[in-house]
Design a protein around this nucleic acid. Structure first.
Lengths: 219, 219
DNA sequence: ACTGTGGTCAACACGAGTGTTGACAGAATT
DNA sequence: AATTCTGTCAACACTCGTGTTGACCACAGT
């Protein structure tokens, strides 16, 4: 990594200036960059992605990137935060609903799959990481990311626990283990599911998994 | 990356010489290195692992590593191949058995979890990767790795397909989708399951998942 | 016409990682 | 005692990625 000394270098100033007045053209270009970066992140993962690669994807010079974005971290953040927050919101929204636990599980699983498809590959980028570097970092950002992750898991655990408590779910193991089972089944899709090339729709997959899980859990 | 020009440099020769006569001390040291590397790979992933880090883990100079191992790839290979082959063998062995499909699913899930615990963190290192770099490489090694992966998936798909064919499994979606659901639930454990620190044993988790999946799939 | 500003890029300095070299001390061989 | 082998490491050469600089051109506003 380079010096990164002064919080404000030349481009850094020009960047935040452009960002401040935020012309629509500038914002659009930023979006384009974010989108291209998303593709690369999804293919190569965070560590495997170089800004050089992102620049090439857009056929622009790498230096130009820095007019829009200050670092790979920031770019990744921009790409992933919104997506992951949406994901967490989804889970927590289902959790606070009034349906029965097993219905919640069903709703959640199908909703997640639908969301994955709709926002592909945004959410997958988020899911692929976690361990790789988020777990290692001590920055404010990685702390925040871990927190989101935790809320996501916590929400699903809470749903399962409620099911165990009201007797609708057989307690074959702890709520945590069962919740991770669900998370895993759904989350693993990021390894093989590519919306456009998949013979099965996200909806079908979601329905199948939801069905599988609900039947598997219920008393 | 450095030149890597001539297939035989100085250390390269000394290394293969030492390897050829294979004194037990040398082999042991190699094992120690592999073990330390496994730890690091499991924590940081392939890309995130530097040989510098591995050397530090052992409190030796990085150059010394090269007396035992020629590259990070080779080291990773040494660590992961045996483990992944064992994994595949397990799946294929269950596949060719004579039990009913749903019994096979049950056996496989529990056996996999037990294997994960027993050989921790070897198998997890293998599972964590795949996409990250194996998918991208075009080397003979990555081809081989992909092939192993494929056989693993194929075996589980075949079991599910057999269940669909004989009517014991409800065809809520394709065998592929259902198989990946199982693989995902089990494989995702590499993100949260740490044998020594887990309140639940691998056996318990395996039993719970096997139960969940079998009940979820059967007619 | 001239001044500035928005977007671009070639070029630089630096760091981290890799694979290699050459030499060193101690043990084993002869 | 002389010689070879073993394991070690400090130091090198090189690559790749990063963040920055300074200058460039096109087009706007005055």
């Amino acid at each position: 990594m380079a010096p990164a000394k002064s919080p404000s270098s030349q481009i850094s100033k020009r960047r935040s200036h452009a960002l401040a007045k935020g012309s629509s053209a500038y914002q659009e270009r930023r979006q384009e960059i974010a989108k291209a970066a998303t593709e690369v992140f999804n293919r190569r993962g965070f560590r495997g992605t170089s800004l050089t690669a992102v620049a090439e994807e857009l056929n622009i010079d790498r230096a130009t990137l820095y007019y829009y974005v200050s670092s790979k971290q920031e770019l990744f953040d921009e790409v992933v935060r919104e997506a992951s927050e949406r994901n967490v919101a989804l889970a927590e929204q289902v959790l606070t609903g009034s349906a029965k636990p097993l219905e919640k599980v069903h709703t959640l699983v199908t909703a997640l799959m639908k969301s994955y498809e709709e926002h592909y590959p945004l959410l997958f980028v988020y899911m692929r990481e976690n361990l790789s570097h988020v777990e290692t970092g001590r920055t404010a950002w990685s702390t925040q990311m871990r927190s989101l992750n935790r809320r996501y898991e916590q929400a699903i655990m809470a749903i399962v626990q409620a099911g165990i408590d009201d007797g609708s779910i057989r307690p074959t193991s702890s709520a945590r283990v069962l919740a991770f089972g669900i998370i895993g089944m759904v989350g693993w899709t990021n390894r093989w599911f590519v919306p456009d090339r998949s013979p099965e729709s996200a909806e079908e997959i979601g329905a199948a998994y939801a069905d599988l899980v609900v039947r598997g859990l219920r008393r």
